[in-house]
Amino acid sequence: MRRIKAIIMAAALAATTGAVTAQDIEDPTRAPYYDSFKDKTVAFLPVSMGIDLTEGWAAGIKSALEPLGVTIEIRDPNFNTAAGAQALTSLISEKPDVIVVHNPDVQSYARLLRRAEEAGIYVVQVNMRSAYSTDAFVGADYVGMGRQIGQRLVDLCSPDNGKSGKVAVTQGVLTAAASIYQMKGINEVLNDHPEIQLVSNQAADWDATKAKNIAATVIQQHPDLCAITGFWDVMDVGTAAAIKESGQDVYLLTQGGGNQATCDAIAAGSFDESVVYNVPGQARDIANIIKQLLQLKPEPGAMKTTLFTQLEFITADNMDSGTCWKLPGQ
């Protein structure tokens, strides 16, 4: 349906463009701009659809590129790396113009991404980096993010401020790139601050129920716990529930794509703070990189661009109605 709609829109656009150019003064970049997107295909291969990040990126890319006549194809491996590799392999033989890929880990797609570039396809990586650098990377700087979070924990919980200095970390899956890099950043900071004590560092497998059980036990063991930082807001809903049930004053610092649900939770007091890599902004970055690649037409793999996303630390104080974003149907 959407594709049909896109085609109709593109056709309408093309028609109006034609009509307009006949009358007005020509903008010399205009025709080449639209020409460079004609009949182009962009394939999006996320880790899985159905989560706010990937839905947000998909929506952003679509709204930016579909009006230009670009076909967007989405392959959904549903959190299955092997299926993702299969999808990527078949995409390489189908030869879209650009592949936007969301890596499940640093390695699994590395060799396939190189093959894709060799086959003449531009590859843009989103948010999770592969060991192999491609034309562009758009996403959070996780090591830097870890450092910032670590520093934030120090600021919040330092005994100098009268706090206990006890903090806990709830990771997602231990082996995910986001987890590894962030932990590296957090550890770098905490190593410089021996007064901050990491009392629990557990993985909850991105599962809210597990996160809740871990948090409940940790709080119960350390009633003076100062802060918990979790690696995904969806999972930290469980952590928040555990904190609420315990009745203790534990600061919950979470992170995520900044979906409206996050702001709602901050407003409701479930989360105290969230580190947000703005998903619509990332989507715009992706779309811009794609536009650039399609216009400049460099040799695939020749240009290695990195666009780190600006991070925002949202709290109830600095939040307003426009801070978070919503999906079209939300």
């Binding site: 959190f79 299955n80 499940p104 390695q107 699994s108 797609y109 060799r111 082996t175």
Partner: peptide, 17 residues
Amino acid sequence: LFASRLGGAGADTGVGL
């Protein structure tokens, strides 16, 4: 064979296989 083809060690390799 899988290792030789993809050369990647992911967390979910073989999950649900």
